[in-house]
Amino acid sequence: MGLRWHHFALWGLFAVTLFVLPEFVSRGTLRTLIFANFLAIFAISWDTLSGRTGYISFGHPFLIGIGAYTTAILTKRFDVAMEISIPIAVIATMVGGLIVLLPALRIKGSYFALVTLAMMELIYQLVQVIRPDLTGGTRGMSGLPTLTRGAVNGYYMSVSLMLAIALTTWLVMRTRLGTALSAIGMNEEAVSGSGLSVTKLKMAAFLFSAFIAGLGGAVYIHYLGSIAPRALFDINFVFTIIVAALIGGAGTTVGPIAGAFFLTFLLEYLRPYLPGAERYMVYSGLALILYMAQPKGMWELFFQGIAKFDRLGRRE
């Protein structure tokens, strides 16, 4: 697909807006934005595999967890520097995920979703019982080295990473590889009949998705300075990632970012009124309404709005 100057201009405008934001918002809002950035990274990762190819994964924290635990163990237990442990964590996520989850890509539909869900539950149980001296067991680990200090620095780190991942993903998805991945989601048999190796394409999607998940997971825990298995492998975390991608616009790069920002702020603003898990009922209801209104997500609604505005302008 062709690249136009206005594409880069829009990305530039988006980046500049995000970079000047700390001048105008409170520290509290910045902290919320940091979580939105990380959720956007995870949603982009999920979308690269599931939104594009149609293989719905319910076990994405499995990949995020490999990256997060690898760097946590290396830095905390073996005093490895973060500059080394994070790349190792990314490679471990890609290799570990490939060994465990790639065979699952041979099955389709709800069976694939169930296998990935089982994988997440499996790693949750394993980190608690296997070598708790390394993993920290049920309590996880705290006192991990952090990459930055303070909300502003944390925001700049997370937004830079999110933008770098988003732009890279957007560029990759505009190549023929990206087109072929989207084609799998629409008609896998036709992809095969066109002479493309569906297995190799799915592997490419998986590795790319694992790369983002591993990197995001590793950097995330070095922002938090701690890792807690109960929060990481929580079913609500999975659904938040999936819902962010779906309501934002699956199969796009900007959609998951929009969905992640929308969901994070929605959950945050609901917190004073609904401090417990009830918040998730409200957001799932809202997500359902949005999804019923436009299955292609908020990003499509945005385009429809622009088209309507354009038509009105021409009429006048």
């Binding site: 697909m1 023929r176 087109t179 072929a180 066109s194 002479g195 493309l196």
Partner: peptide
Amino acid sequence: DNLLVGAYT
């Protein structure tokens, strides 16, 4: 894009 998928090889 439909045509380009056929051009992969």
